[in-house]
Computed example of a mutant assay.
Amino acid sequence: MEGLDALLREIRRIFTAGSTETALAWLLVAMIGGLLAGLVVSRRRRGRHNDVEYLFLASAAATRKAREISEIEAFARKASATAEDLKARVRRLRTGHFLQVKVYIDHSNFIRTWTQIVHSRDRPLEHDVDWARLPQVLLEETGDWLSSARKAPQALVYRGTNVYGTLFEESYFKLLETMLRLEQTAPDKLPLPIRLRKETIDRWREENEAHKIELMRTIQGEIGYQTVPILRRTPREDQIFSSNFTSGGIPIAPEKMLDTHMATDLIGDATFDVYDIALILSEDSDFVPAVDFVQEMRNKQVIHVGFGGHMNDLRAKCRYRIDLGRERLFRRVQRAGGADSAKPPAAADGNGGNNRSPASGKRPGG
């Protein structure tokens, strides 16, 4: 403490006017102040320099990135143009030599029509379509059409068959059984009276299982086939009053995504030149926009395959139609013994119908 007091007295003496050290002390203070001010100014200038340098580097990086993106886009455009030119050259080279053919089948739609035409009112659980023979017959009919139109190439190249089918979940049949019990015990809990018998539900369940086996095993096991099974959405029991129903009080299990899957594959395969000619086995007019696109924008040809001579929107849009009913052409794609496997018409159910299945005929699934 005494040392600090002595230091303060000495400083006071030095800075007192008239002291010999006063001028030197003030000069030293001025030099220190000037040095500190210079350091502050230098630091501020350095900060501004760093900001400018950072902005310059950021601008240069952004410019370089934009140039790289522009170069990539230019390369992509050039590659796309080259690919289109290459595909056009390949098409010109193969013109008159071969055409690629692919088949697209709406399984539920095709089987419903097949059953109505081939088996009348009878509905065998096991369908007698010869899936191995079907593409061969269709390619022969396509070749005959091209020959008659004087467009026949030296060969038709088969690119495979896509089969799209819808299936019911087991929960749908359990829902029907629950509604059947409520009809007998508490009919006021149902939105509509349900006209259905237990035997009919069991029959529908068997047919749905037969469809599943056909899609997942029989057809999938054939060479060149690819199956796309799609499950229908079962209405929730706690939301049954907001569901849609048939006139017989049967809840509708909506069919979702089949049309989208099939149309997407039809357009995608056309874009990548998987086929030159597409054969569609369906009567659904929802495919008309996709057929329009592949024929007008991708320069492909679409052939409709079905039964009968009546016209609809889909048939009218296609370049040609193969009528499986003409001269009983369907016999060529029917398994041996199929024509003799007919059974007596099914007994009518409580709905006044013929036990029409949700998997064939007019389906409660929509």
Results as ranks from 00 to 15, higher is better:
residue 271 T to M: 14
residue 336 A to G: 07
residue 110 F to Y: 03
residue 73 E to G: 06
residue 363 R to I: 09
residue 32 I to A: 13
residue 166 T to L: 11
residue 260 T to G: 09
residue 101 V to K: 04
residue 232 R to F: 07
residue 259 D to E: 02
residue 277 I to Q: 02
residue 339 A to M: 10
residue 147 S to I: 09
residue 89 R to V: 14
residue 4 L to M: 13
residue 284 D to H: 06
residue 359 A to G: 14
residue 125 L to M: 00
residue 350 G to R: 01
residue 133 R to I: 08
residue 138 L to K: 02
residue 339 A to T: 08
residue 100 Q to P: 07
residue 206 E to G: 09
residue 316 A to G: 08
residue 308 G to V: 02
residue 33 G to T: 11
residue 99 L to S: 04
residue 327 E to R: 05
residue 317 K to T: 14
residue 101 V to T: 14
residue 37 A to K: 11
residue 265 D to C: 04
residue 164 Y to E: 00
residue 204 W to M: 07
residue 286 D to W: 05
residue 197 R to N: 06
residue 38 G to A: 03
residue 30 A to M: 07
residue 76 A to C: 05
residue 190 L to C: 02
residue 324 L to D: 01
residue 155 A to N: 10
residue 13 R to W: 11
residue 148 S to E: 15
residue 289 P to E: 02
residue 345 P to S: 03
residue 141 E to H: 14
residue 166 T to Q: 07
residue 126 E to I: 04
residue 292 D to V: 07
residue 296 E to C: 12
residue 118 V to H: 00
residue 11 I to A: 15
residue 184 Q to S: 02
residue 128 D to G: 13
residue 172 Y to Q: 00
residue 24 L to N: 11
residue 15 F to R: 02
residue 24 L to F: 08
residue 217 R to W: 08
residue 283 E to K: 06
residue 115 T to G: 05
residue 204 W to G: 02
residue 39 L to G: 09
residue 143 G to C: 11
residue 145 W to L: 15
residue 236 R to Q: 15
residue 320 Y to M: 06
residue 162 N to Q: 15
residue 57 L to V: 13
residue 24 L to G: 10
residue 163 V to F: 09
residue 275 Y to V: 01
residue 159 R to W: 05
residue 158 Y to P: 04
residue 263 A to H: 03
residue 65 K to E: 09
residue 44 R to V: 12
residue 323 D to A: 04
residue 123 R to P: 06
residue 353 G to E: 14
residue 216 M to Q: 14
residue 300 K to F: 03
residue 201 I to T: 09
residue 182 L to M: 01
residue 269 D to Y: 00
residue 205 R to W: 12
residue 53 E to T: 12
residue 322 I to G: 01
residue 290 A to M: 12
residue 39 L to P: 04
residue 259 D to I: 00
residue 229 P to S: 08
residue 73 E to F: 07
residue 67 R to K: 08
residue 65 K to I: 08
residue 345 P to W: 05
residue 199 E to Y: 06
residue 57 L to G: 06
residue 47 G to Q: 12
residue 269 D to A: 00
residue 290 A to C: 13
residue 246 T to F: 00
residue 208 N to C: 14
residue 164 Y to S: 00
residue 71 E to G: 03
residue 342 A to K: 15
residue 277 I to Y: 04
residue 218 T to Y: 10
residue 294 V to A: 09
residue 82 T to R: 15
residue 113 T to A: 06
residue 334 Q to Y: 06
residue 198 K to S: 12
residue 85 D to S: 15
residue 177 E to D: 13
residue 305 V to D: 03
residue 183 E to N: 08
residue 124 P to T: 03
residue 65 K to C: 06
residue 332 R to W: 05
residue 219 I to M: 15
residue 260 T to C: 13
residue 189 K to H: 10
residue 63 T to I: 08
residue 258 L to A: 15
residue 50 N to C: 05
residue 44 R to H: 12
residue 183 E to F: 05
residue 69 I to E: 12
residue 312 N to C: 09
residue 248 G to Q: 09
residue 202 D to N: 09
residue 215 L to M: 13
residue 363 R to N: 09
residue 132 A to I: 10
residue 26 W to Y: 14
residue 46 R to L: 12
residue 176 L to V: 04
residue 205 R to N: 10
residue 212 K to C: 09
residue 136 Q to C: 14
residue 259 D to H: 01
